[in-house]
Amino acid sequence: MKPDKEKIDNGRRSFIGAAAGVSAAVVAPGVVLHTVDATAAPRTEPVTDLHRWGMLIDTSKCADGCSACVSACDRENGLNLQSKPLGDDPLKWDNQRAVWIRKVKLQDNTTGRITNLPLMCQHCENPPCVDVCPTGASFKRADGLVLVDRHTCIGCRYCMMACPYKARSFIHEKVDQKLTRAPRGKGCVESCTLCVHRLDEGDISTACADACNAEGHQAIVFGDLNDPDGPLRQALRQVPSRQIRQDLGLNTGVRYSGI
């Protein structure tokens, strides 16, 4: 690890700790939370495959009952601005509103052990949603993000049929309120973007990982899968990890340990 990175990250972490009203000491040292690009700035060149963004989620650190990542994502991407259309059935609406990240709680059938984990778009290297999209609106960006180009999405929902992770949402209703950084409209499909607006501004972080760190759990490590010395690869070297539905050979960008 380069010493300058260490310094910078400590500064960042202490800030987050303070912001959350937690003393900086609560945040355990030792795990690097963010990659810091020396040239961080709004980008002026198109993204390349030099980076591939991904995550490691340590399920042993993911706390039962905590949903900080979910609410942070909702705020970050304007998902909390959705409102139930007048007259819709509340139970149906629960299944119709867009969700980018979910808190999933599992119990092992044999041992009874409980596991918690956040589940979102896994940003596959070989994404089934991209394969099936008839117009090419569902696409993989050069830096590994699997995104939807709303300008060419016709709303056929075939990608939702193809996704093994139930990661995608269709916008079932008119959207009145939206954020500038997260456009959203009736009739298109969307899913987790790994906070692409942050990445494009040169800020290597996601709302969910920040929120998890602020809670002091540090279950989510976000970073560059292509950077051998980066925090993500270091973390992946330290703990055994696997992919959800590894059998499908999709080479996901989001990895889990402890499942």
Binding site: D94, V99, K105, D108, K166
Partner: peptide, 23 residues
């Protein structure tokens, strides 16, 4: 489609997102 996606073999899904969100 109504049948849930099997993502976690050998495990039972106790919660999946907010209450009401089926998984």
């Amino acid at each position: 489609q109504a049948y849930p996606l099997e993502m976690f073999p050998g495990k039972t899904v106790l919660e999946f997102g907010a209450p009401g969100d089926v998984g």
